[in-house]
Simulated assay, not measured.
Amino acid sequence: MSDALVSPPVFILTGAVSLALLGTAVWKVKRERNDRPANGREREHLLPLMGVMGAFIFAAQMINFSIPGTGSSGHLVGGILLAAILGPWAGLLTLASVLVIQCLLFADGGFMALGCNILNMAVLSCLVAYPLVFRPLMKPNASAARILTASLLASVVSLELGAAAVTLETELSDITALPTGRFLLFMLPIHLVIGIGEGLATAAVIGVVQRYKPELLAEAATQPAPGRRKLGKALAVIALAALLIGGSFSWLASSKPDGLEWSIEKVTGGTDLEAAEEGLHGTSARIQQTTALMPDYDTSLAGIIGSGAILAAVFGASYLMRAGQKQP
């Protein structure tokens, strides 16, 4: 979402809810790392895995795939995939980190809309669709068919909830001329198709992890914890994939408008909505002008730089968490 869709009250409300949930996520992740689960598995690898998975999702989000017959495109959100590998709270933190860096460094999504975007993309996928849809359908050593079913259903639910939330937040903001019913009429079908694409991609990645590194899955209670050497190799492979996607495959991304832009265009005739130049909207624009070193990904190295920024942010957080812990 851009700032043009969000009013100051909605900005304050969604920002407060997002901050509260992110604070809870930090506490949950610290506790998960420090406490030994009942099955004896420790998740010391969680923070480095968050870093490389965040870099992978950032790079993957840069690849917009065309949706035939619509003139629109979609991209991976990654919430279900992150929650399946990291757990819901760590997945939330990782995806929120991606959204923050996209907003501040690349001016992708509005600063005032950041709380909305975290709720719509990270919270609804990691804390709603994952525990309510994906996890009940998955089993240890799940078959390819079960992985595909769980991934498709959870991704579709996540995207449809997000599309409905965007429409609701726009209506509550009441600063655009977008008619709610017609806007929703375009948002839901296009995000249904995007959700199917996301589900297929999610199932493919989880299927590979299930086959070759099942111990990395968040719910792999029956698997032994990975050794440091094996973990290092797995992290290196994921990081290399992120750099490869961000540095090469992202050039193949579709230039067609994404699902939200396409829906706005169908309703208004154009994809651009102008935000107010004064008040909080003006302040938000000035913040992004200051922080966005590469607005609109205007460099061929944007994918690599963004992936590196995600790694730096998560490993920096890892250092701060470790610094505050007493050594045994």
Score class of each variant (00 low, 15 high):
23 G>E: 07
188 L>A: 07
19 L>Y: 07
107 A>V: 01
114 L>C: 04
133 V>L: 07
253 A>Y: 08
308 G>Y: 02
263 S>K: 09
296 D>S: 13
85 I>V: 15
183 F>W: 05
320 L>R: 11
221 A>F: 14
27 W>S: 14
109 G>A: 02
172 L>H: 01
306 G>Q: 11
173 S>F: 07
132 L>T: 12
277 E>P: 00
121 M>D: 02
149 T>I: 06
294 M>Y: 15
137 L>Q: 14
156 V>A: 05
5 L>R: 11
181 G>Q: 10
166 V>N: 14
241 A>G: 05
47 L>S: 10
273 L>G: 09
311 L>V: 15
251 W>F: 15
284 S>G: 14
91 G>T: 11
109 G>D: 01
249 F>Q: 03
224 P>N: 09
322 R>M: 03
241 A>I: 08
169 E>A: 09
70 T>G: 08
152 L>W: 03
124 L>K: 12
261 E>A: 15
86 L>E: 05
32 E>Y: 06
115 G>E: 05
41 R>T: 13
291 T>R: 03
48 P>V: 09
41 R>I: 14
182 R>N: 05
92 L>K: 10
194 I>P: 00
208 V>E: 00
303 G>V: 11
203 A>R: 04
206 I>N: 05
164 A>K: 05
313 A>E: 00
166 V>A: 11
119 L>M: 15
99 L>R: 14
249 F>A: 15
293 L>I: 15
19 L>S: 07
59 A>H: 07
140 P>M: 07
47 L>E: 08
83 A>V: 08
93 L>T: 03
77 V>T: 15
31 R>H: 10
24 T>S: 08
160 E>N: 13
239 A>W: 11
281 H>R: 06
134 F>A: 14
93 L>K: 05
23 G>F: 10
64 N>V: 03
254 S>Y: 03
311 L>D: 02
192 L>G: 14
63 I>G: 08
267 V>M: 02
20 A>L: 13
16 A>S: 15
299 T>A: 01
313 A>P: 04
184 L>I: 12
15 G>C: 01
270 G>T: 15
256 K>L: 15
277 E>D: 14
137 L>C: 07
143 S>M: 05
317 A>D: 00
289 Q>T: 06
199 G>A: 02
149 T>Q: 11
295 P>L: 03
320 L>H: 04
92 L>Q: 07
222 T>A: 04
280 L>E: 03
326 K>R: 12
316 G>F: 09
233 K>P: 00
16 A>F: 10
255 S>Y: 00
274 E>C: 00
294 M>F: 15
70 T>E: 05
47 L>H: 02
129 A>T: 08
55 A>G: 14
133 V>G: 05
21 L>A: 07
188 L>T: 10
252 L>E: 02
235 L>T: 06
104 L>S: 02
